[in-house]
């Protein structure tokens, strides 16, 4: 695990992104790239899934893609 990682995959970080604008799972994964967090692909998927289940964000379809967002 690199000590220099500057991006942390946390519930608070995800919440802040989803308050700002609706995002797809792919959008979120781009924000928490493995090379920046030091997590493996599998860890990233598992942690992000747990966070999204806890946050239980609103969902809407934009351009036929499911987007998550949180009302402020």
């Amino acid at each position: 695990t690199p000590s220099s990682s500057d991006v942390h995959l946390t519930e608070e970080a995800v919440r802040r992104y989803l308050i700002r604008k609706p995002m797809t799972t792919k959008d979120l994964l781009k924000k928490f790239q493995t090379k920046r967090t030091g997590l493996s692909s599998e860890q990233t998927v598992n942690v992000l899934a747990q966070i999204l289940k806890r946050l239980n964000p609103e969902r809407k379809s934009i351009a036929d893609k499911m987007h998550f967002y949180i009302k402020q």
Binding site: K26, L29, S41
Partner: peptide
Amino acid sequence: SSSEADEMAAALDAELNDFI
């Protein structure tokens, strides 16, 4: 790579499928 990102997104979508 973008293909790895696609795989991760697919895995995450699948993980959330029951939930969604």
